[in-house]
């Protein structure tokens, strides 16, 4: 359905949209493109849509809206655009205009199941963008409300929600059920010893291959989780149970995370190491390391080093027997 939209926030970007030369360098870095691989999922494809809407070349339909609201704000596109086009700022303004016009939106925005949510409020201070608020629902009842313009889809709240009330649309391989599936899938093949959970925001682009198989077998597998704050402890336990000899969580250095997700990860992993001891698993099999943007060589070095350490340790017999 087409709605009448006042593009008052988006229109100011027309000159910037013209500056996009459509070289496409942005899309090899885009996790959405990796998941769906249609041109309409690329940052340049979305810019073209915004340009099309504000110049009247395409109608703002629900299909366009669905695409515009699919973005994790990793900003790999903006940060690597040689023409300096502020891709995510443009998308934010387009989102605001489309929401004002009354479109139903989902995309990568988190959803809250009110039946499951106890309004404990754990998620609220986690969100660096103030996208979650406790509001009155009427008759002394409260609920958590999501600001759909501000939500960056980082998923920190998802990993922290004790009642599993927060969810995100599946399809990009970063929701908890999908991540569990990826853990099992990767550890099933090629005798992988190490599983690396890598933050998309800072680390992964530098060492990212396309879907192309390189024909080179590696003793490790990498799962991109968006922010390291998404790595829920049960994912790590799942990896050990599925046969991993070790797990590495690779996140941004403390002061560099856009979402402050790494602080949460650090706390979570300290607690988890204690639990590993209880399970008779050497806590050294779980490693947390920080890498800045562009430090893909360092990441590779650390992975190789850790694989050697794990080879010395061997498989986790105690846990397997249990």
């Amino acid at each position: 359905m087409v709605k009448k939209v006042d593009f008052k926030r988006s229109k100011k970007w027309e000159n910037e949209l013209d500056k996009c030369i459509r070289c496409g360098y942005c899309y090899e870095l885009c996790p959405l493109f990796k998941s769906y691989s249609w041109e309409s999922d690329t940052p340049r494809g979305k810019l073209l849509m915004v340009h099309g809407m504000i110049t009247g070349k395409i109608a703002p339909t629900q299909e366009v809206v669905d695409k515009i609201f699919q973005c994790f704000y990793c900003k790999n596109c903006s940060d690597n655009c040689s023409a300096g086009v502020p891709v995510t700022d443009i998308l934010t303004d387009a989102r605001a205009d489309l929401i004002n016009a009354g479109f139903e939106v989902q995309g990568t925005i988190v959803q809250i199941d009110e039946d499951l949510c106890s309004v404990c409020g754990v998620c609220v201070p986690l969100c660096k963008y103030d996208a979650l608020k406790i509001v009155d629902k009427g008759k002394d009842k409260k609920k958590i409300e999501v600001d759909k313009v501000e939500c960056r889809g980082c998923g920190l709240c998802l990993a922290a929600c004790p009642s599993g009330a927060i969810s995100q649309k599946e399809g990009c391989n970063v929701t908890l059920p999908e991540l569990h599936e990826s853990v099992k899938e990767i550890l099933k093949k090629d005798d992988k010893k190490l599983l690396v959970f890598a933050c998309n925001y800072s680390i992964f682009p530098g060492m990212q291959l396309s879907e192309t198989e390189t024909l080179v077998k590696t003793p490790y597998g990498i799962i991109v989780t968006m922010c390291s704050g998404r790595v829920a402890p049960e994912l790590i336990l799942d990896a050990f149970e599925s046969g991993a000899w070790g797990v590495m969580v690779a996140g941004c250095p403390p002061e560099e995370c856009d979402h402050d997700g790494n602080y949460k990860t650090r706390r979570r992993l300290i607690l988890l190491k204690n639990i590993l001891k209880e399970l008779n698993i050497n806590p050294k099999r779980l490693k947390l390391d920080w890498f800045s943007t562009g430090e893909s060589a360092k990441l590779q070095q650390e992975i190789n080093k850790f694989v050697k350490e794990l080879e010395n340790m061997g498989p986790i017999e105690a846990y397997v027997k249990r």
């Binding site: 849509m49 395409i58 339909t61």
Partner: peptide, 8 residues
């Protein structure tokens, strides 16, 4: 889908 066609 017109959205995809436009992107291509």
């Amino acid at each position: 889908n017109p959205v995809d066609l436009y992107a291509y």
